[in-house]
Design a protein around this nucleic acid. Structure first.
Length: 423
RNA sequence: GGAGAAGUAGCGAAGUGGUCGGAACGCGGCGCACUCGAAAUGCGUUUACGGGGUGACUCGUACGUGGGUUCGAAUCCCACCUUCUCCGCCA
C-alpha cells in the first residue's frame, strides 16, 4: 500500500502517477478524506485517555487516604463510555482507510512508458531470431500427444479442463527444467533455495497484494481458510512478514520452485489448448529484498538472471517494458520476458520481473535497519519468474521439434534428461 | 482428533486487579571509567507504531491475536493462533 503521509503531503503528484494507469484515481480522494477524519478522532480520544490515565492513578490514593471516591468513579464511568464511543468511531474510520489504501495501486515509476494497455508496451531488446522451419511445425500439444509425453485427455478425466499429465520423458523434461533453473540461480546468481508451503494464509495473500482485490482468481481451502499459492512470490516475499531485517543482509536473494494454482476465471476461450494457460503449472520464482537506493539496479540484474535461462536454452525471446495501463497492481515497473512460440506466431510471456518498491513491504510489514540502532525503514521487494516451467517446456517442444516428429533436447538439459532426443 | 502446559523486550525470566510496564532480576548489545591493551569490575544506556509541535519535547497505543467484564486488565472471562508433553491416527 502507499504511505498515507505521502498521499497527504504529495497529493497532486501521487494522484497523477496513479491516474497514469488510466483507470481513475482508485479512491485516492476518499483516502485523503478518511485520513483527516481519522486524525481528528485520534486527537479527541487521546485527550480523554490522558485524563483517564491521570485520574486512574489518583483513585487508589484517595482510597488509601480513606476518602470517598464515589463521585470520581461516576465521572470516570461517564468518560469511559465516551472513550469507547469515540474509539469505535475511530476503529471504523481506520478500517475504512485501510480498505481504501488496499484498493490503491502502486505509483508507476517515471521511467514506465505511459499507455492504455499492452499494445503500448515498449520492446527493449531481442535475443535470437524467430525459429525457421523447413517443414510445417506442429503446436506443442500435438507434439506432446504424438510423442505420448503429454496427456491432456486423461488429465481432464482425473481433474478437468486446463490440467496436464506429463508422462515418461515429458515428466522428466519438466523436472529437468526445474533443476536446471534452480541450479543456475543458486550456483551462479547468488540465490538461496527455499522450499515453501504450497498453501498460505490470508495475511500472506494480503501482504503481496493478491487479497482483497483478486480473491476470485485463487483456489481457496475453506476448512482452514488457506489459499493454494498462485505463485511462489507469496510465500517467498512473506517469509519476512512483520520482521526488521539487518541491513547487512541486503540485498537478499531467494528462489523457489512451486506449483502455482490459478482459477483463470475470465479467461474462458483464451489459450484453451496446451500448456500456456492451465490451473496448475510449475514455476521457479526469484525474489529479492533490497535497500531503496539499490532496487532499480536489482531489477536489471534480476531480469538478466531470468533471461540467462533462455540464453542457455537458446530459445529466442524479447524483453518489453510494460506500459502504465498494463502494469500489475502492486508494481512500480515491470519487464516482461516473452519467448518465441511458433504455434502462436508471436512472443508469449514467460517471465514478469517487477520492482514493487516499498508497496508490498508496507503491506507485509517488512523493514530493515541500516545500522544497529537506526530507525527501521521499509525494504524494496522485487520478483520475477525464473521461469515459468510449463511454458518453457512448451517453447522447447515447439522450437526444437524435428521434421520426423521428434524433439531434440537443448544442450544445457541433456545431462539432466539423460537423452539427446525425445522420440 | 482428545487431554494437559505454555506464549511478557535480542535471549532467559519475575510479576495474579491500581500506587515502577519500557516493564524487576540475569544474560547479551552499546557508551564511559579503571587498564599500555584486554579480561574482570563499576557506572550509565538499550522497543516499535501513531497523533501534535519548526524544534527541545509531548500525548496515546502495544504483555501471542481478537473480543468481553471493570472507573482501571499482563493479571478475571470467551474465542482463535502458535509451541511443548502425552494419547489416537497416519505417509
Amino acid at each position: 500500500m502507499l504511505d498515507i503521509r505521502r498521499i497527504r503531503e504529495e497529493y497532486e503528484s501521487v494522484k497523477a502517477a496513479v491516474e497514469s494507469r488510466g483507470q481513475g484515481d482508485f479512491g485516492l480522494a476518499d483516502a485523503l478524506a478518511l485520513d483527516a477524519e481519522r486524525r481528528a478522532l485520534i486527537a479527541e480520544t487521546e485527550q480523554m485517555k490522558s485524563r483517564q490515565n491521570a485520574v486512574s492513578k489518583e483513585i487508589p490514593q484517595i482510597k488509601k487516604a480513606g476518602g470517598d471516591a464515589t463521585a470520581v468513579l461516576a465521572e470516570m464511568k461517564e468518560l469511559s463510555d465516551k472513550v469507547k464511543e469515540v474509539d469505535a468511531k475511530l476503529a471504523e474510520a481506520e478500517e475504512k482507510l485501510r480498505a481504501a489504501l488496499l484498493g490503491i495501486p502502486n505509483t508507476p515509476d517515471a521511467s514506465v512508458p505511459v499507455g492504455s494497455d499492452d499494445s503500448e508496451n515498449v520492446e527493449l531488446r531481442r535475443f535470437g531470431e524467430p525459429t525457421a522451419f523447413g517443414f510445417e511445425p506442429k503446436p506443442h500439444w500435438d507434439i506432446g500427444t504424438d510423442l505420448d509425453i503429454l496427456d491432456f485427455e486423461r488429465a481432464a478425466k482425473i481433474a478437468g479442463a486446463r490440467f496436464t499429465v506429463n508422462k515418461g520423458l515429458g515428466a522428466k523434461l519438466e523436472r529437468s527444467v526445474v533443476n536446471f533453473m534452480l541450479n543456475l540461480h543458486t550456483r551462479e546468481h547468488g540465490y538461496t533455495e527455499i522450499l515453501p508451503p504450497f498453501m498460505v494464509n490470508r495475511a500472506a495473500m494480503t501482504g503481496t497484494g493478491q487479497l482483497p482485490k483478486f480473491e476470485d482468481d485463487m483456489f481457496h481451502v475453506p476448512a482452514k481458510d488457506f489459499f493454494l499459492v498462485p505463485t511462489a512470490e507469496v510465500p517467498l516475499t512473506n517469509l519476512y512478514m512483520d520482521e526488521i531485517l539487518d541491513g547487512a543482509m541486503l540485498p537478499h536473494y531467494i528462489t523457489a520452485y512451486t506449483p502455482c494454482f490459478r482459477k483463470e476465471a475470465g479467461s474462458a476461450g483464451r489459450d484453451t489448448r496446451g500448456l500456456i494457460r492451465v490451473h496448475q503449472f510449475n514455476k521457479v520464482e526469484l525474489v529479492k529484498f533490497a535497500k531503496p537506493e539499490e532496487s532499480w539496479d536489482e531489477l536489471e540484474s534480476l531480469t538478466a538472471a531470468a533471461e540467462e535461462v533462455l540464453k542457455r536454452l537458446a530459445l529466442p525471446y524479447r524483453v518489453v517494458a510494460l506500459s502504465t495501463g498494463d502494469l500489475g497492481f502492486s508494481s512500480a515497473k515491470t519487464y516482461d520476458i516473452e519467448v518465441w512460440m511458433p504455434s502462436y506466431g508471436r512472443y508469449v510471456e514467460i517471465s514478469s520481473c517487477s520492482n514493487f518498491t516499498d508497496y508490498q513491504a508496507r503491506r507485509a510489514g517488512i523493514r530493515f535497519r541500516r545500522e544497529p540502532g537506526a530507525k527501521p525503514e521499509f525494504v524494496h521487494t522485487l520478483n520475477g519468474s525464473g521461469l515459468a516451467v510449463g511454458r518453457t517446456v512448451a517453447a522447447i517442444l515447439e522450437n526444437y521439434q524435428q521434421e520426423d516428429g521428434s524433439v531434440s533436447v537443448p544442450e544445457a538439459l541433456r545431462h539432466y534428461v539423460g537423452a539427446d532426443v525425445i522420440r
